[in-house]
Simulated scan of single mutants.
Amino acid sequence: MFSDYTATELGSIFAMQGFAGLILFAVFLLMALGLAIIFGQMGVINMAHGEFMILGAYMTYLTSNLFAEYLPGLFDAYFFVAIVVAFLASAALGAFVEWAMIRRLYHRPLDTLLATWGLSLLMQQSYRSIFGAREVGVRIPDWMAGSFPVTDIVELPINGLIVMIIAISVTFGVYLLMFKSSWGRRVRAVVQNRPMAGAVGINTVKVDRMTFALGCGIAGIAGSAFTMIGSTGPSAGQQYIVDTFLVVVFGGAASLLGTVASAFSISQAQSTMEFFLGGSMAKVLTLMTVVIILMVRPQGLFTLKVRK
C-alpha cells in the first residue's frame, strides 16, 4: 500500500488527508455534539438528527438567495446571519417535536428509534416537496474562497478553516453552557438524578424540551457549516447519521471530551484510509476497529459518573 510512494510523497499525502480529516472532524463534531446532548441526557435515539442538519443547510441556502437578491451589498456577511437562522429554525422544530412526540416516548428507546426514523422519512419527503429532489448548493462569499498554502504541495481551503473555527467555537460555547451556567447545572442534575432534581424544584419537563431543542439547533449549525464543503439534498443527512452515532457511542454518551476525541479519531482514520483503500473499505475498517475497542471498553472512551 505504501511501497508505491516515496517518503516525501507519503508525508504530503498524510498532511493533505490530515487537513481533509479536520474538515470532516468539524462536521462530525457539530453533529455529534447535538446528538450527545440529546442521547446523553434524555436517552432518546434520534434517527432524524441528520434531517435537522439538512434543515439548517436549507435555511442557509434560502438566506444566501435572499441576500443575493435583496441585499447584494451585504452578501459577504450572509453566512453569519444564516448560522443564526439555521440554529433558530432547527431548535424551534426540535422543541415542537419534543412537545408533540418525544415527551410521550421517554423510557421507551425502541419506540423513540422507530418514531424518529419515521420522522426522518417525513422530513425528507417534505424537503423534496418544498425544495425539489435535486441537490442545491450555496454561493460562497469571495472572502471564503481560495486556500492558504501550507507547503508547496499542501494547501488549506479557507472555507474548511472557517468550518473548523465554527466547530471549535460551538464546542467552547457548549462547554460554557453545560459547566459554567445555572441552566447547565440543572441539566447535569437531571442527568445524575432526575427524581431528586424534580424534588428540589427543577422543572425537568422544561429542561428536557430545551435540551432537545439545543441539540437540534446545534445540528442546524452543522448543516450551515456543511453547505461550505458540499451540496445539500433531501437525503444528505443520512450519509452522516451512522458516523454520528458511532462518534457518540465511541466517545461515551454525555461526555464532551469523549465526543471531541472520538470525532477527531474517526475522522482522521476515515480520511487517511479513504485515500489508500477507498471510501467503502475505509468505513468498514473504521467500524470494525471501533467495535473491537467497544468490546474491550463498552462504556466508550470517557464516561460520566452518575448517582443511582
Rank of each mutant, 00 (worst) to 15 (best):
A68L: 13
K308F: 02
A68Y: 09
S169E: 02
G137Q: 13
K308V: 00
G220A: 10
M196Y: 12
M273S: 09
Q238G: 14
F39R: 08
M16D: 02
L55C: 04
L176G: 02
G146P: 05
L246G: 11
L71Y: 13
L113G: 04
K180V: 00
V27F: 05
M42Q: 15
F52D: 00
R194G: 01
T151F: 01
S280C: 00
Y61A: 03
M101R: 02
G201R: 15
R128G: 03
I158Q: 03
G18E: 08
I158E: 00
V296F: 11
G300C: 13
D111F: 05
A92C: 01
P109C: 09
W183Y: 08
M288D: 00
D76H: 10
L177D: 12
F302A: 01
T116P: 11
T171Q: 03
I23K: 09
A236E: 10
F28I: 03
Q239D: 11
A91C: 06
T211K: 03
F14P: 02
R139G: 01
A36S: 15
I162N: 06
M144K: 05
T116Q: 11
T151R: 03
G56N: 03
I37S: 06
A91S: 12
R104Y: 13
F28H: 12
A32S: 15
L287P: 08
L246V: 07
Q192V: 12
G278C: 08
I162V: 15
F67M: 09
K283F: 05
A48C: 10
K308G: 04
Q17H: 11
F245R: 02
I162K: 02
G215M: 06
A145H: 04
F80G: 09
Q238A: 14
F245M: 02
F250N: 02
M295H: 07
R209P: 05
V97D: 01
S90Q: 07
S265A: 14
V291G: 04
M101T: 09
I168T: 11
Q17S: 05
M59V: 13
T151V: 04
F79Q: 03
V136Q: 10
F275L: 00
A20K: 12
M196L: 14
L62Y: 14
V306D: 01
G40P: 13
G11Y: 01
V290M: 00
L55D: 00
E274K: 14
A36C: 07
N65H: 06
L121C: 10
V27W: 03
